[in-house]
């Protein structure tokens, strides 16, 4: 079992390195200046890795937090909350401070997260109700982003697309390093609570009787996940599906115990998004696809396939 686990980590790391090299060498025409790689492609690949890690880990933690395997930043609308916060901050003119945008994205994500938390605590809410509420919140947030953009500027819909479909082209060296650092520290913090996250998988009541201080863990994890999502969304917009697909496959590979799951989610998430982003800008050169379109194109059929296969086995 342990050898298999290391093999999976190793495989993921290799895939990520290959994707990274691929991302550095393909995409933009070859006659561009030399520092293209160091100034554009390298930070972009770095940011893709950071966001991939962040969203996958956020998805895995959210699934434990709400003990529902269909939760993730995008389906629960928390990404929309973050995007809304970031857009408002940019509009109010505090975009010259990097922390300003990330900070208000955090406020937006936390606000949506807290709303969901209270909805999930309501006694008539089941898993389905929670997801419905999340999807509705997501629509609300996205529409408000689009509305704000359209009202602020006649071409605003174009930039709204950045937030709504995700785009890694705004990566800059310093920002990318900051994102990676933030995401890695938050991932480590979540990893440290693996036993508590494990207990939450059994539902709130069981977790309590297993000795897990559920209210405290939930508050801590909600803040942690909101921070993760804020860092990712403020740098790259809303990228869907990663938070759902990567934890799902990682669980099938190593089971649900978070000590093994979170590192695997991080590695696979980084590899998947780096690869998707490299593809999204090289497939239809010179045009770029928003990376969210590609993750959904790759992720959704794969996900459905696995679902059907699983149904067949039952």
């Amino acid at each position: 079992m342990n050898a298999r686990l290391w093999r999976l980590y190793f495989l993921g790391l290799c895939t990520w390195i290959i994707a990274f090299v691929f991302a550095l060498n393909f995409g933009i025409p070859a006659d561009s200046p030399r520092d293209l790689i160091s100034q554009l492609r390298f930070p972009r690949a770095l940011l893709a890795s950071a966001v991939g890690i962040g969203l996958s880990v956020a998805g895995a933690v959210l699934q434990a937090l709400f003990s529902n395997p269909l939760c993730e930043p995008y389906t629960l609308g928390i990404s929309s909350g973050a995007a809304l916060g970031a857009v408002l901050a940019a509009a109010l003119g505090i975009n010259f401070i990097f922390f300003g945008i990330t900070g208000s994205a955090f406020v937006g994500a936390l606000l949506f997260g807290v709303i969901l938390y209270f909805i999930s605590r309501h006694r008539d809410t089941n898993n389905l109700g929670l997801l419905m509420a999340g999807v509705m919140l997501g629509f609300l947030g996205s529409s408000l982003v689009a509305l704000w953009m359209a009202l602020a500027d006649p071409n605003g819909i174009q930039s709204a697309l950045f937030w709504l479909l995700g785009d890694l082209s705004r990566a800059r060296p310093r920002g990318a390093f900051f994102s990676l650092f933030a995401v890695l520290s938050l991932t480590l913090a979540a990893w440290g609570s693996w036993r508590k996250l494990d207990g939450l998988l059994m539902g709130e009541q069981d977790a309590l009787t297993l000795g897990i201080p559920v209210p405290r863990v939930r508050t801590k994890m909600l803040i942690l996940v909101s921070l993760l999502i804020a860092v990712c969304v403020s740098a790259a917009g809303m990228i869907g599906f990663i938070g759902l697909v990567i934890p799902h496959f990682a669980r099938r590979a190593v089971g649900s115990l978070h000590q093994k799951l979170i590192p695997l989610c991080a590695i696979w998430g980084a590899a998947f998004l780096t690869f998707s982003d490299a593809l999204s800008r090289s497939l239809f050169r010179p045009y770029e696809l928003p990376v969210g379109v590609l993750t959904a194109l790759l992720g959704a059929p794969l996900f459905l396939l696995v679902m059907f296969k699983r149904q067949g086995v039952k």
């Binding site: 395997p69 036993r195 494990d198 059994m202 069981d206 297993l210 897990i212 089971g255």
Partner: peptide, 21 residues
């Protein structure tokens, strides 16, 4: 007990140990 997440029987019983460790 809930079985929505892939967990083996061993891993489930192991959760009973989280209060000890």
């Amino acid at each position: 007990i809930r079985a929505e997440f892939p967990l083996t029987a061993f891993e489930t019983v192991l959760m009973g140990r989280s209060c000890q460790a």
